[in-house]
Write a protein that binds this DNA or RNA. Structure first.
Lengths: 200, 200, 200, 200
DNA sequence: CTTTAACCGAGACGGTACGTCGTGTCTTAAA
DNA sequence: TTTAAGACACGACGTACCGTCTCGGTTAAAG
């Protein structure tokens, strides 16, 4: 999940010439993130990123294949801080905590994520990469649910993928469609719901 | 849910001048729908709509405030055919049927809906209207669930709004993020899941 | 030089229906003149004329074939006040007076005339009518010069048309190209020049 | 008299970045000239120039501030071939030759010049530049007249600027207003007229 | 210590879309 | 039949963004 270099030369000559300047990558991603987090109407253009980063457009396109790729990597960088996977022994509690943390993180990055999806919807190539990133991030929740199943807190027959689709579906729905907040209360109720004790 | 005219004049003068040509509206919406349904990469521009409809851009902008408004109305026009609300007496069965129908309709209109959301994500004004449309269309599912609650098939305490967010969330998640199909099987399993009998 | 009616009906039926409202003609020409006299950058559109006159565009196009025709007629109306043709017995004096008066009138109507020519340069049809109008207005100067020739103040062989081209040429040159003022002093010197006593 | 770049950066950095492609400038000016010389009714649009030159509109606007500036430069480029300043010793003869040559050149470029002035009349910014260009081109005639004065063929008191206004005034009058030809005979008679021997 | 290849900022360029404006024609309903 | 209101097609305007492409200058490993 890092800016892919231009196709490595087939010859096995190790490397000559000036090395990539890591400051460039940072400047680009930081500028992108800053613009992405801006007011909702504002569009994020490559020109603007380049200008703010003090970098040439060409350099951006050397390291990222498209605007979507830049945005994705900026979001990835920002989302680095993993949400912890709690283990108190009680699935519903753990789930509620995890979801509340996740929701909080997502709320904070709302503008970024909306714009990221906007770009993915325009550019098939970006979409694939984003899909992969998002799918990869489901691992935390999955392990939590699997543990629940192993402990018998969740029926063995329950389709975890569908459950996860419901959970993340609700999250994205609120973010992209309904534009309504994701609260800790939502997290708690959702946790009870998918754990089969909706009203305890 | 019709192309809003520019603010109706405050005076109560009945109407003077040439009337709006309904053929224009139809041609624009038909062209928009056709382009919206096109291959996934292709962008839908006002220029293209105008060209295909044999209509001037000016005319489009006279009746619709933005591209998003045109797309929304095209989708609305297309989505006219309501999904029936079945009533066999068994909530899970009814729900499964309703969702299967809904999913089928949504799958058919996939490209349209993706582009619609794409536009909403880049134009705050459009977003509000789309939100209203989408929220309005939740009525069918709500009545189905309410009936289930009244019959005691669903606990009275169950938060229907959250349940609906889960259902529609899954649907949009598959459509926008995962880009994976929505099958009749998904409908059935989802129906069982939200009705609290996930594995019967 | 009046707004040409649409081709008179061949049938000799005297006239049915509502008669032309003369107030419309006045309102249109007055508005056109007002806009024409506006600041130099501002364009004069038919829409603007119609709006200011409280008249529909259609009505304008019913009575005038093009924008140029409206502008021309507005200028004609404004230029109605004829420049007097003096007769003191001395050609140079008379000519100087006449030209000074003419220059003063033209300077006042500068913006109008510039825009009129601008329109004529875009629209061949208008151009012809304007040409005719301008040529028709040469009569005053011509009679003055002819009288000078008859009195022997001007050689009989002098080509009056060429002389007039020089005089009006200078006037339009200053107005359209050089954008420099036409003074009474210019009038006097020009009068002496064409009368063959440039430095007396 | 060349397409002005956007304000040269104040810093004295020599130049970085890709250089301006001279082929672009040529293609634009050539296309502009070709369209300018087209049939009289046809308007010359930036779109058309860009299309014909195989250049993007953006590029045109990068180098020229307005349509007028493009047209002016196209005309300048075309008018490069200077009219020779003859010196036979006799002012009237020299003047007649010079004017005949000038008239011939101007007649050939008639459509261009008309459209150039049309543009200047609707765009104050262009007007100023065109004025400067036209004024600059008066030098040839002026030197001819000055020589005549020095030789005593023209009275020392004669106002040369006024004389030139008469000459160029007649020329533009025929071109823009009267739309009548400028012949060699006109040149000869005009030469005699301004040289004070109108009927020899 | 020179070569040489890669990196990089500046920025020109073609293409495509945007939303606005102006002209001239046409339609409707009232006067 | 005239009129005001106003819809409509056509086509130009000037701006913006995308992704590609030079142009020089810089940097570091390889010779």
């Amino acid at each position: 999940m890092s800016s892919s270099p231009p196709p490595p030369p087939a010859t096995s000559r190790p490397h000559t010439g000036r090395r990539r300047n890591p400051a460039v990558r940072d400047a680009v991603l930081r500028s992108a993130a800053e613009l992405l987090a801006g007011p909702d109407g504002m569009a994020v253009s490559i020109d603007a990123i380049a200008r703010m980063a003090g970098v040439s457009k060409h350099t951006i396109y050397r390291w990222w294949p498209s605007k979507g790729a830049v945005l994705l990597e900026a979001v990835v960088e920002h989302a680095q801080q993993e949400v912890a996977i709690p283990d108190t022994g009680a699935l519903v509690t753990d789930l509620a905590t995890f979801l509340a943390d996740t929701f909080r993180a997502v709320e904070r990055a709302g503008a970024l994520l909306r714009r990221l999806i906007a770009e993915a919807l325009r550019d098939t190539a970006s979409a694939q990469e984003m899909r992969e990133f998002i799918v990869a991030r489901r691992g935390g929740l999955r392990s939590l649910l699997v543990r629940g199943q192993e402990r018998g807190e969740l029926p063995a027959e329950q389709e975890l993928e569908l459950t996860m689709d419901q959970i993340y579906g609700l999250m994205w729905y609120r973010l992209l469609i309904a534009d309504s907040p994701l609260t800790a209360d939502d997290a708690a109720r959702l946790a009870r719901s998918v754990a089969g004790r909706p009203h305890s």
